[in-house]
């Protein structure tokens, strides 16, 4: 197994790099999009619930099926993969972003408005900082989910660690599968750990945890 690594480490790391690239692109786009959608809907509870339900339905479509649906429109490759992953993330992110904003103690928000803060000031100075733990929790969840689902992107030629897994399965190469799995688990673990630290730090900062 080590021998396999030493022989093919350049290919392994290339796959890893591709994977990280897909994940990072996906997360940046997902978070931006989810933030914009959240800001547009957070003041209207009915609309918020509706949007979360719609993305919940999208989230429940198996990824292979979603790839198949989109390939005729957006073709094979990384673009389609990122699009699908972004769509999935909207459910996890928007649901947590909204829950975070709604969980802020209403009397704190009332005091803020009562002092003459504008909507934007209340959002940026009060609601977002106090919702930060749930916002980060949502980002953490979607990061892990993206790292996992992104392996399936290999089926539509998007590259990444999924290539190792699927190639390994086709050629019955156990080492390849094992290395693909280990790499995937390691980046998921590292990303989760980093985000967990950020989450803890923010929770302390906003006084949720002492």
């Amino acid at each position: 197994m080590i021998a396999y690594f030493l022989k093919y480490y350049d290919r392994l790391f290339l796959a890893l790099l591709e994977h990280v690239e897909i994940v990072l692109f996906t997360l940046v786009i997902s978070i931006l999009l989810a933030s914009v959608i959240t800001i547009l809907i957070y003041r209207n509870e009915t609309l918020g619930n509706l949007i979360v339900q719609i993305f919940g339905a999208v989230y429940s479509i198996p990824s292979l099926a979603l790839f198949a649906l989109l390939i005729p429109i957006t073709g094979l490759g990384e673009k389609t993969a990122i699009l699908v992953l972004v769509l999935y993330n909207q459910f996890l992110l928007i649901r947590n972003f909204l829950a975070g904003l709604e969980n802020v103690n209403p009397s704190i928000v009332e005091a803020a408005y009562g002092m003459g803060m504008s909507n934007i000031q209340v959002l940026t100075k009060i609601q977002i900082p106090l919702a930060a733990p749930l916002i980060i929790a949502g980002i953490r969840l979607s990061t892990i989910s993206t790292i996992g689902i992104a392996t399936i992107a290999a089926t539509i030629n998007a590259g990444g660690l999924g290539n190792l897994l699927f190639d390994g399965m086709r050629t019955m190469n156990t080492y390849k599968i094992l290395w693909g799995t280990i790499f995937c688990a390691v980046i998921a673990f590292l990303a989760d750990d980093a985000l967990k630290r950020i989450e803890d730090f923010i929770q302390k900062k906003v006084g949720v945890k002492k």
Binding site: N105, S107, I108, E110, A111, A112, G114, P129, L130, G207
Partner: peptide, 11 residues
């Protein structure tokens, strides 16, 4: 404006 729940900003 002062309310019973005080509404200080905890962060």
């Amino acid at each position: 404006y002062v309310i019973q729940q005080i509404g200080l900003f905890p962060h």
